[in-house]
Computed example of a mutant assay.
Amino acid sequence: MPEKHLSSGFDADLTLASTRLLEMGGLVELQIARALSLLRAFDPDVVQTVLASEHRLNQMELEIDEEVSNVIARRQPAARDLRLLLAISKCTTNLERAGDEARKVAKRIRRIRRIHENNEGQVIGITEIRTSAEMAMGILHGALNAFARMDTVAAAHLVRDDAAIDNEFRAFTRRLIVEMTAHPRVISTGLDYMVIAKAIERIGDHAKNIAEFVVYVVKGTDVRHVPAAQLEQEASS
Rank of each mutant, 00 (worst) to 15 (best):
V218K: 15
V123T: 13
R170W: 02
G138M: 05
L191T: 14
I115Q: 07
T93D: 05
C91Y: 00
E232D: 10
V28W: 04
T93H: 04
E134V: 09
I88K: 02
L158E: 05
V178D: 13
E96Y: 13
Y216W: 08
H141V: 03
A35D: 09
D11W: 06
H5V: 11
Q76C: 09
R130C: 03
R114F: 01
H157S: 08
A79R: 08
I126Q: 05
R74S: 08
Y193A: 07
A211P: 00
A207R: 04
S237C: 02
V186F: 00
S18V: 13
V214E: 02
L51D: 11
S132Y: 04
E101Y: 06
L21A: 06
G204K: 10
I112D: 00
I129S: 07
G9F: 10
I32Q: 06
H5F: 05
D222P: 01
L38D: 03
E232R: 06
V218Y: 06
R111W: 09
I124W: 10
L51E: 14
I165F: 03
T92H: 09
P227Y: 04
V68T: 03
A155C: 08
N119M: 08
L16D: 05
L14C: 12
E63V: 02
H5T: 10
F42D: 11
E23S: 12
D11N: 15
V68R: 03
L27W: 08
T19L: 15
F42E: 05
V215G: 00
V217I: 15
D151N: 13
V153G: 11
L140E: 10
I124D: 11
R40F: 09
G204Y: 08
S37H: 12
L27P: 02
V123P: 00
A106K: 07
A211Q: 01
D65G: 15
T19I: 09
A148R: 15
R75F: 06
P77V: 09
M180Y: 07
R40W: 04
N70E: 11
A73F: 11
M24A: 03
S7R: 15
A33R: 13
A106D: 03
H141F: 07
F42I: 04
V215C: 01
A148M: 12
V195I: 14
S236L: 06
R174Y: 10
M137P: 02
H116G: 09
Q31T: 10
A52W: 04
A211L: 08
K104A: 12
E66T: 14
T15G: 01
I196S: 02
L85P: 09
L82N: 03
R224I: 08
M150C: 11
P44H: 15
N145C: 04
E117L: 13
R34F: 08
I177H: 05
P44Y: 14
R185Y: 05
R170G: 05
E67W: 07
L158R: 06
N70P: 00
I196D: 09
R175L: 14
I139S: 02
A197G: 15
A197P: 07
E66S: 15
K219L: 01
E63L: 04
D81W: 00
D205C: 11
L144Q: 12
E168D: 13
I115D: 06
A199N: 10
Q122N: 01
A136S: 14
A182D: 08
I112M: 07
A228W: 05
G9H: 12
G220E: 02
T131A: 13
F147E: 04
G121M: 06
R130Y: 06
L38W: 07
I165A: 00
R174C: 00
T152C: 14
A235Y: 01
L36D: 01
R83Q: 02
